[in-house]
Design a protein around this nucleic acid. Sequence first.
RNA 1: GGGCCCGUAGCGCAGUCUGGUUAGCGUACCGGCCUUUUAAGCCGGCAGUCGAGGGUUCGAAUCCCUCCGGGCCCGCCA
Length: 526
Amino acid sequence: MHWIDAVAQQLVKRGGKQVIASGISISGHIHIGHSNDVFIADAVRRAVEELGHEAESIWYADDYDPMRRVPWPLNEGELAEKYKQYLGFPYVNIPSPDPGYRSFVDYFSRPFIEALPLFGIKVKIYSGAEAYRSGRMAEAIRAALENAATIRSILNEYRDRPLPENWLPVDAVCENCGRISTTRAISWRGDYVTYRCEGTDYVAGCGHEGEADYTRGGAKLTWRVEWPARWKLLGVTCEPFGKDHAVRGGSYDTGKLIAKKVFNYEAPYPIPYEWVSMKGKRLSSSRGVVFTLKQWLEIAEPEILRYFIFRSKPMKAKEFDPGLTLLDLIEEYDLVESAYYGGGEEGKREEQQRRIYELSQVGQVSKTPIRRIPYRFAAVLAQVTTDEKKSIEILISRKMLVNPSELEIKLALRRLELARNWVREYAPENLRFKVLEQLPSGISLTPKQKQGLRQLAEDLAQREFTPVELHNHVYSVAERAGLRSDELFRAIYLVLLGRESGPRVGNFISALDRDFVIARFREASL
RNA sequence: GGGCCCGUAGCGCAGUCUGGUUAGCGUACCGGCCUUUUAAGCCGGCAGUCGAGGGUUCGAAUCCCUCCGGGCCCGCCA
């Protein structure tokens, strides 16, 4: 059984409506590593619904957290100085670097939120800042303040150095300098928290002393308390989270205790997951090691990312590589897809693969089989022509499309577009080529190579060739001209690409305009 | 100091939860086919003491214990 279904089963056993939460601190661009969070939450929602029970998945923007570090790309150039002054501010109060966005939070989160439906994710969106400002957190804050001693003793169980006697689980926003990370709560009374702006290790405080109304966003709960408070507030029954929270004595452990003792709430079913890394480095929004959902959609279908996440267990580290390795991932997906529709053997393994395929779908699983064109070939074809009709003709002649349905043609054209983008952005240099507008000047061909090209030009002018015929024809022409085949191949690549090798000649030339090729070969043979 | 993950064919991995036919897949490699193939396709082949040791069991890659190697996380920010 797939782990998503195992979780769903556990939840159903507990009974009631299931609320699966996910959430991210807006500490920079939201990348595909963060996607684990939402994708898992929403998949569990789907699985619970498939079992016939009510479920909802939510995504929570932790936009009231302080900015501890200026994230990439705002930490470069002139912007760096400007944004440094916002260190310690709640994210929600920081301006956008781009006038097209309302705020820092909007700038980093909107592209992510807008991409979610394209990946088949249906989550309810919440904002931490909104929750505090609207007063919805007020009751929880009061409970936490009243039970500060209990909370302190829970946290102290896992601390070497105990928290001070007068410690309170809230951070106020300084009304003078606007920072939240710099304040220390001194006391509380009714709806107000008295604080002093003392500073923190990465930014100084302003020394201001004041009172904050926590029923209107004047203060937030510290993370370890905020998390369980949120569980209670939203009725969270299950939550995926990064493995950092899952460590013994970490925020899940303490959260569980606080939930029980302070909020009288059963902690959600936990799903810890591993990070995603890219080229050996863990994805990190603040450090600029990012690959966003938007970037993903430029080079691969959304199903592939879902597949990437659901094909392995959540605690298994994932390595993402947008380069050549991506093509392996895509091929693997295609294979699972064709096996799904191909019937074949029935076993534990096949069953698992089928389920992973279903979980990878953006919407309903297609009832009619889906056949896709090979991405690797698309990467070549996309560089040869942008003409859609011509592309489809070539694909049909190459038998990569057989009596294609409307859908298959649509998928093929989309994949060509994706492959074109991939080649431009991520392909290794040796996979890229460009057909030269002009015959390159610096090349020298032997008389026999010229003779071969001239012959090819004549033959092309005489009759139609399928790609395979054409490819084979090159060999016979070479033979008649007394050339080794590789010498003729080299000549062809030189006059068209200016390099000694290239894509397979049959495909390649078939994809080009015939008159163009004839003219080029003739010109080169003079 | 604590915790997690990984170790299965040259390489990348699935299978481990729920033990059960000759341990799979991809790739690489070798061979063949499509009139000869420089990045397409098809068919076939080679290849593994399942990290080591012990235990449980009729039966262990799978469960338990110990150890070795690699990686990551937490240590009072979230």
